[in-house]
Design a protein around this nucleic acid. Structure first.
Lengths: 325, 325
DNA sequence: TTGTATGCGTTATCAT
DNA sequence: ATGATAACGCATACAA
């Protein structure tokens, strides 16, 4: 296929002039510009971007690290990211890693290899120390509160939000409170676990090992929780459920077995998902869309402004009162 | 940062030798290899992949065109794609286009610009003729049956599947059948519309404009359908619903208003989603995961085998009988 | 087995 | 306003 040299030859100008036309530089006469554009059109020429990336040292791409695409939590963060990336004319490379350290390091190596201009980490299995090593290669922004390690982050306080939810249940008179979540060793999950343990201890509420249920990933997992509850000698009277879709599964299945919500069981969801609105699930909104949008903006400011001063931004959560508590 | 030249200088060998070590070529003595690896380690050297892409003419990346990431349909196809891409050591670039022709052309231009090695189109607003123009730049595979236009495709027959569903409802004794779907002018939707119109005509079933409902995107849209049904002077007694999550919204809301499913209203979903299993929604499985997996394999065979002969593969659907019809 | 020289396609630099 | 040429970092044909 044609290259810039050939265009120059046919148009009867230098490669520099062609390059100038290509990049909308000033200082090129309108008649020469016309000739060049004409030839480009005729030969259906387009740039080999790899050459451009090589010499400019930029690629116009940002990688996003997340464990699963197919999850409400991450897909809504992605929407925020995508919206801002579009505005900034940046390309997003979505990297689903399944919490695999190896996969995540591959992405960071892409940054080192100059294949991308920056990385947004929505959730990670990597330690802050390892991530910090890569900041010399380009801007890195995380959507987790992993402390101040030399790279920017925007996050919600999962600990505080969860405590807030527990307090809400407590204020509504509930004392026997259970909790279920996705991955037991996910980072946000560990914050919620701490909040759960500490709140129960402070208020001297009853703790049962079996009231903590993990590995809930979809609606069916939620339904399974209902099954489990039914077999318990002593049941919780309220459940904190990380993810409205899980809560939905729980609620639907519980009702199937004649339980009334919130009469027999109060359910508090998290993340304000569409299914939650439908079932009128009381939930905690965590501004996930804004989290994604802000993360991209932070990257963009860093790569343009050249400011290497990291920013740490906390997003506020809020409880949406509906009818399952 | 260090480049191959510097490594060569410090290691006391030629750049060729360094390159050979980098690419695991034979014909390099073990002692020189050791020295090179040592220096690479010490200087923390990694290749500038843009240079590699430039000279090799390959990037190891494939773009995926789809309208929305945040949709069950597409995310499950993505999982199939991701699985195969991982095996083949290929990177996936997910391009959410919102059915924007402009955005989709941008992706095809990436292929032209050598930024990617191929394109998988899951859903598109582009015509087959336009897509065909780009096949000279690299392998293109679509997940739609758009006829034989010189590029491979793997697809389910939305028309046949939908007819099959209608026939199932018909066999169960239903005559007043409604239909709801997402985007009215989505490509799969148009097949379903044809199937709907033609089936009704053939069987001389009653047709009401208001029994066709579009723009259903999430659980809440499904709930809205229930509201609409209630206001109709004459209601359908069965609904074909494109997407189990929409069907879920419809069913939940309908039950809220005292309707029995399938007694007062039979509901047939599509796509065999988790929420559908939970609510025991009768549905049509379309092998979406396999569609994604097969699409990637086709790309990979084409770029390796060099075979430019397009493949057209149809996937079979099947009805999963549960309890909403 | 190793090295030299050339080229990939573009932009940056500097001269005019 | 325009052009010649260097430079980006790497892989590879060819020579040794």
């Amino acid at each position: 296929m044609a290259n810039i040299k050939e265009i120059a030859r046919i148009a009867g100008v230098s490669v520099t002039t062609v390059s100038r036309v290509l990049n909308n530089h000033p200082y090129v006469s309108s008649n020469k510009r016309a000739v060049v554009l004409e030839t480009i059109e005729q030969l259906k020429y387009t740039r080999n971007m790899n050459a451009v990336h090589l010499i400019t040292g930029r690629t116009g791409a940002v990688a996003v690290i997340l464990p699963y695409i197919n999850s409400f939590y991450f897909s809504i963060v992605m929407e925020g990211l995508a919206h801002e990336a579009l505005i900034a004319q940046y390309r997003l490379i979505v990297c689903q890693t399944n919490y695999s350290r190896e996969e995540e390091l591959k992405v960071l190596d892409m940054l080192r290899n100059k294949e991308i201009d920056g990385v947004v980490i929505v959730s990670t299995a990597l330690t802050p120390e390892i991530i910090a090593e890569y900041t010399v290669y380009g801007p890195i922004v995380t959507c987790q509160n992993s402390g101040k390690h030399g790279y920017s982050s925007v996050y919600t306080e999962h600990y505080a939000a969860f405590r807030h939810g527990l307090q809400y249940l407590y204020d509504k008179g509930h004392r026997k409170i259970g909790y279920c979540d996705g991955r037991q060793n996910g980072s946000s999950s560990s914050f919620r676990q701490s909040a759960y343990h500490e709140f129960l201890a402070e208020k001297r509420l009853p703790f049962h090992e079996e009231w903590m249920i993990f590995d809930c990933v979809n609606e069916e997992s939620g339904a399974a929780i209902a099954q489990q509850l039914l077999t318990m000698p002593e049941r919780p009277e309220a459940m904190m459920v990380a993810g409205d879709h899980i809560a939905a599964g729980l609620i639907i299945e519980a009702r199937k077995h004649g339980m009334s919500i919130p009469g027999d069981l109060a359910v508090m969801g998290i993340d304000n998902q569409p299914i939650g609105r439908l079932l009128e699930i009381t939930t905690i909104d965590n501004q996930l869309y804004e989290m994604g949008a802000a993360a991209f903006r932070m990257f963009h400011e860093q790569i343009n402004g050249g400011s290497h001063c990291p920013v740490y931004r906390k997003l506020e959560h809020r409880i949406i009162e509906r009818s399952t508590v």
